[in-house]
Amino acid sequence: MKLHQLSLFLENKPRQLRVPSKVLAAAGVDILTLALADTQQFGILRLIVQDWEKARQVLEQAGCVVNVTEVVAIEVPDRPGGLDQILAVVEEADLNIEYMYSFTFHRGDRAILVIRFEDGDAAIAALQANGINVIESVELFKQAKA
């Protein structure tokens, strides 16, 4: 129901992103999506990958600090008002969003929102009660992407 997201601590300076990217490439880990949050001093790279356990292992071996969090991925129609429809449910259920990122596909008419809720279980219940499609596994995530 919830997906495992890997978060990496990065210092905010040139070439830092290349380290995890190289490690994942060498291990043949498929990155499904990512987002980079930054502050003046440091950044957090958030990743959803095909095999999160393997990814965590190789990243930690390479000396990265990795945190695993559960996030909720939901499918939304890729049209005006798509996001607002979701946020209406979130507001109605009084859910707190820590952060989110989204992306669309090259074909098709859907987008995916990845959201870190303060209370993931409550969020899933509320979203599903309102007929919103919560992506249940990385595999389905991939199919949606294809």
Binding site: F9, F42, I44, E60, V65, R116
Partner: peptide, 18 residues
Amino acid sequence: EVTSEVFSDKIRSLENLQ
């Protein structure tokens, strides 16, 4: 140095730590 014990995926937590 950040260690896995203190690292959180939330920027706020890291700023709180700082």
